[in-house]
Amino acid sequence: MDFNQAKEKLYRLLEDNPSLAIQEAKKLSDNHNLQLLKGAILIDAGAAIKSHMDVVKGVEIIEQDSSQIPDNQPILYNLANGYHALATTIVLRCPEWYKVTYHNRLKSKNTILWCG
């Protein structure tokens, strides 16, 4: 499956069945562009179903690629989106949630500012 086919399929699944989108994204090859797509899907679908571990994996993929290609706007956008999803998918039952998620929220904000 080429990049455009994979992108169309995964974003359609993301809308209809985020869990299945995650399963399918995990099957993508190690091709650079497909890995970026995989990271983005893991972040977006993981955020949709509140799967913190999938978001973590997606952020790891995007962070790795952002270090290789700095200043790439779409990659930085996905990275900022991932940091935000890390902060919103963590499950806390305490009033300190704001402190616990501060680092990821700050990274998201700084990445967006750097991007713009």
Rank of each mutant, 00 (worst) to 15 (best):
M1T: 15
M1K: 11
D2V: 08
F3L: 14
N4Q: 15
Q5A: 14
K7D: 13
L10M: 08
Y11P: 04
Y11N: 12
R12A: 13
R12C: 04
D16V: 07
D16Q: 15
L20C: 08
A21Y: 04
Q23H: 09
E24P: 10
E24V: 10
K26D: 13
S29T: 14
Q35F: 00
K38M: 07
K38C: 08
A40T: 07
I43D: 02
I43R: 01
D44A: 10
G46W: 00
A48H: 03
I49P: 04
S51F: 04
M53R: 12
M53S: 15
V56Y: 04
V59I: 06
E60F: 04
I62S: 06
D65W: 06
S66K: 11
I69N: 15
Q73S: 11
P74W: 06
I75K: 08
Y77V: 00
G82L: 00
Y83T: 06
H84E: 13
A85I: 03
L86M: 10
I90H: 09
V91D: 15
R93F: 00
R93Q: 06
R93A: 01
C94K: 04
P95R: 09
P95H: 05
E96I: 02
Y98P: 05
K99Q: 13
K99D: 14
V100A: 10
V100W: 01
T101A: 13
Y102Q: 14
H103F: 05
L106F: 02
L106N: 12
K107G: 07
K109P: 01
N110R: 09
N110P: 01
T111A: 03
C115W: 08
C115G: 03
C115P: 02
